[in-house]
Amino acid sequence: MITVSLYGLYRLKATDAKYEFEGAKDVKHLLTMVEQASGIPYKELKQAVIFVNGSPIDQLDMFSTKLHGGEVISIVSPASGG
């Protein structure tokens, strides 16, 4: 089971804040599942900051980051205002 939590803009756009998925082999595959479940287009999800177990995917293998089940995924829209 992979748990996906949406934050900020993505939570506002989705039907739910949290989803659970089985069988996603990597982050790219997972995002297609999130698209189907949440209604947020894949293209938009690719713009998000994505953490796998607390590690941002730009410090891993980006969308090719492998998933094995049990991961906690956070999809975040950072803010830059002050």
Binding site: G8, V49, V76, S77, P78, S80, G81
Partner: peptide, 29 residues
Amino acid sequence: AGVNANYGQLAIIENKKILPSLYRREAKN
């Protein structure tokens, strides 16, 4: 800290960078 409309984020950053990952693309403000 960073804020936009109804959502934002904050952290104490000491020796581990996080902002280059957060701000890979333009963020709303």
